[in-house]
Amino acid sequence: MPDTSAPRLLGPAEVRELAAKLDLRPTKQRGQNFVIDANTVRRIVRESGIDDSDVVVEVGPGLGSLTLALLEVAAEVTAIEVDPLLAGELPATIAKHAPAQAERFRVVLHDALTITDVPGPPPTALVANLPYNVSVPVLLHLMALLPSLKHGLVMVQAEVADRLAAPPGSKTYGVPSAKAAWFADVRRAGAIGRNVFWPAPNVDSGLVAWTHREPPTTEVTREQVFAVIDAAFSQRRKALRGVLRGIAGSAEAAEAALKAAGIEPLTRGEALGIDEFVALTVALHANVEVEG
């Protein structure tokens, strides 16, 4: 059970003090925009729906603003940080601002895009301010790596949030939407302004919440379905009959697979939900070996 002694959250003064101590110059390359508003991190935690039974994994904790808010609620928090400078300082920040919670926190120095093992108890939730330049690959990688995840909430660029939560047929629906739907039911959970960050980004941010769902099939693999999704959106304005000819072997074979899956051959990829992509992949693999 989390200790009732609440952590002291970071505000603008504390964030800048830490940055000065570390001689830190936030880099755009690593998507370093640090939250300096306590109300915002508490809102993220509230919207995430985590409670004192959750083991939370956080990506890109930075100076620890969100980490401290997570420790107010969660049973444990594991933070994955790629920057050695930030990873090295984080335990001291937690010890100073949340001494009662320090034993329930661990930091892992690793790139979240390539991590293959997260130490500690299996995480049940992912809550993070994801680096904007790699937000979708990181989210999909961790969803695949950690089947124990039940739910989560991530802050990403507003445009990316729209794409992740987009339904089939909408203008923003695409590869991220379809692939995320393999793992979870995804929804938009709010907007975040620019002035809560230091340095302020030049884009707006959005919250995306998700709840785990079981894989929609065991007949074909996730990799096989994702290869079909990638192909379907490779030429977004073209009908699937033509777009899939490469992996089906011919336009005729693609048409046969589409009809077998109950899909009109002149349909575009943006009209298909994850269940239709699964049915299409099954039909394609009944006759051909799809390249992934």
Results as ranks from 00 to 15, higher is better:
residue 1 M to F: 01
residue 1 M to T: 08
residue 2 P to T: 12
residue 3 D to A: 10
residue 3 D to K: 00
residue 4 T to I: 02
residue 5 S to D: 11
residue 6 A to F: 01
residue 7 P to W: 01
residue 7 P to C: 02
residue 8 R to E: 13
residue 12 P to D: 08
residue 13 A to V: 15
residue 15 V to W: 04
residue 20 A to K: 12
residue 20 A to T: 12
residue 21 K to M: 09
residue 22 L to I: 12
residue 24 L to P: 03
residue 24 L to V: 05
residue 27 T to R: 15
residue 29 Q to Y: 11
residue 31 G to Q: 12
residue 31 G to T: 12
residue 32 Q to F: 14
residue 34 F to Q: 10
residue 39 N to H: 12
residue 42 R to V: 07
residue 43 R to Y: 07
residue 45 V to W: 12
residue 49 G to Y: 02
residue 51 D to I: 03
residue 51 D to C: 07
residue 52 D to S: 13
residue 55 V to N: 09
residue 55 V to M: 04
residue 56 V to N: 07
residue 58 E to W: 09
residue 62 G to T: 08
residue 62 G to S: 05
residue 65 S to I: 13
residue 73 V to G: 09
residue 80 I to A: 11
residue 81 E to N: 13
residue 84 P to F: 05
residue 85 L to S: 11
residue 85 L to C: 06
residue 86 L to K: 11
residue 92 A to D: 14
residue 93 T to F: 07
residue 94 I to A: 04
residue 94 I to S: 02
residue 96 K to T: 08
residue 98 A to F: 08
residue 98 A to V: 10
residue 103 E to S: 15
residue 104 R to W: 10
residue 111 D to S: 13
residue 112 A to Q: 05
residue 114 T to A: 15
residue 115 I to E: 08
residue 116 T to G: 14
residue 117 D to N: 15
residue 117 D to P: 08
residue 119 P to D: 13
residue 119 P to I: 14
residue 121 P to I: 08
residue 123 P to C: 11
residue 124 T to K: 14
residue 125 A to C: 13
residue 130 L to W: 12
residue 131 P to A: 06
residue 132 Y to A: 05
residue 136 V to G: 07
residue 139 L to A: 08
residue 140 L to F: 10
residue 144 A to Y: 04
residue 149 L to A: 00
residue 150 K to F: 00
residue 150 K to M: 03
residue 151 H to A: 04
residue 153 L to C: 01
residue 161 A to C: 07
residue 163 R to Q: 07
residue 163 R to S: 03
residue 164 L to E: 01
residue 165 A to G: 09
residue 169 G to R: 06
residue 169 G to W: 03
residue 171 K to C: 01
residue 175 V to H: 03
residue 176 P to G: 04
residue 176 P to Q: 02
residue 185 D to F: 00
residue 189 A to P: 10
residue 199 P to S: 09
residue 199 P to K: 06
residue 199 P to E: 03
residue 201 P to I: 06
residue 204 D to T: 13
residue 206 G to T: 10
residue 211 T to H: 11
residue 211 T to V: 13
residue 213 R to C: 12
residue 215 P to A: 10
residue 218 T to L: 05
residue 219 E to R: 14
residue 221 T to K: 02
residue 221 T to G: 05
residue 232 A to R: 03
residue 237 R to F: 06
residue 239 A to K: 10
residue 240 L to E: 00
residue 240 L to I: 04
residue 241 R to T: 11
residue 244 L to I: 05
residue 247 I to D: 00
residue 249 G to L: 03
residue 250 S to Q: 02
residue 257 A to C: 09
residue 258 L to N: 06
residue 258 L to C: 08
residue 258 L to F: 11
residue 260 A to N: 11
residue 264 E to Q: 14
residue 266 L to Q: 14
residue 268 R to D: 10
residue 268 R to V: 09
residue 270 E to M: 09
residue 271 A to D: 02
residue 272 L to F: 07
residue 273 G to P: 08
residue 277 F to C: 05
residue 278 V to C: 11
residue 282 V to G: 01
residue 283 A to Y: 00
residue 284 L to V: 02
residue 285 H to C: 09
residue 288 V to I: 03
residue 289 E to W: 07
residue 289 E to T: 15
residue 291 E to N: 07
